[in-house]
Design a binder for these strands. Sequence first.
DNA 1: GATCGATGTCATCGCCTGTTGACTTTCAAT
DNA 2: ATTGAAAGTCAACAGGCGATGACATCGATC
Lengths: 191, 191
Amino acid sequence: MARSGRRPGDNDTRGEVLAAARATFADKGYHGATIRAIAAAADVDPALVHHYFGTKEDLFVAAVRLPMPPAEFADRIIGPGVDGAGERLAAAFFGVWEDPATRDALLSMLRGAFATDQGAAVLRDFFGTVLVRRLAGRLDGEDAELRMTLAAAHLVGVAVLRYVIRFPDLESASVDDLVALVGPRLQAYLG
Amino acid sequence: MARSGRRPGDNDTRGEVLAAARATFADKGYHGATIRAIAAAADVDPALVHHYFGTKEDLFVAAVRLPMPPAEFADRIIGPGVDGAGERLAAAFFGVWEDPATRDALLSMLRGAFATDQGAAVLRDFFGTVLVRRLAGRLDGEDAELRMTLAAAHLVGVAVLRYVIRFPDLESASVDDLVALVGPRLQAYLG
DNA sequence: GATCGATGTCATCGCCTGTTGACTTTCAAT
DNA sequence: ATTGAAAGTCAACAGGCGATGACATCGATC
């Protein structure tokens, strides 16, 4: 039985709560994830979650903040030029999704986008500011933004079916196969 | 003030409740839509919703049952052959999404897939049984199912960004433009 | 070694939810 | 006319939720 009061020794309880929030939001969605469940996963009193992060919405915003610099992400894709950007985009996208350090935050963001208006705004802003606007500016031809958005939509769709719905054919596919199949279709939008 | 007891005259209250459920599930998602809100939208007591449809899950299942024969849908796309199937698929897909009679049910299904495990199963089954398996069998080449699933994923992604997230570039695009842009990429998967 | 903020728990409040059972009114069949 | 099922409402319950404020403990500072 855990006593009351501060725990002895060095501990990063705040980080554990944040990790538990990411995992729970990713697994259950925004409404399905309760403060109590998050607190239990972090072995902590529910009140402590509020103490560190304020309201549930505040916690959600903290949970979906990615530990990833978006500018660098965009540069790595479009920096070498338009040629091969489709495959680089696909590889980078699935790379961060497969990375355990970023996966829960991405899943939380994606699922959260379906739960609340604020969650939708977060995703809209993420894709708009971080991805589409940054990459579409370097494309040639008409409707560059729309084409870039459609490329992003394709990636979102694969992420939805692979990581949320867990569609068997997609879940069992390897990242290499996905990149090889999806990359050329992205390239068709970009080129 | 509405009195108690049965209402006089001919009325399809059950249908109104179902329509209200579709609209509310589509707008707020599974958890965001409350029985009370659905009942209020149908101008009805919350208990009547249970009287007609049982539990909330039962109501959801009834709400996402599409007024659309899936077999005919698949035949219209692949019937004339693989040539041009990509554009036909895109046109049919956006057709049912733009149709007010089916849109709310589709939105409910899509949003519901993110809210509960059962919702995910519904979507998995819908795409798997209705779309992928039915169409993939008529394709040539290797990995027909995976390629068909990726085509479906692309469409899901566009639906997500256009109808749920309401991404501006996608929301303002016309169906014709979408079909013209997306169709060839689907064709690349099918052919 | 007293003090003070950071860390952490406890008990509880008010609210909203899905669901239920008793009751009332209308319609249709006898 | 009577009856019985269908349609519809009302009041309420039990449980879970997010959130709050008072309290307990620890670590560092002077």
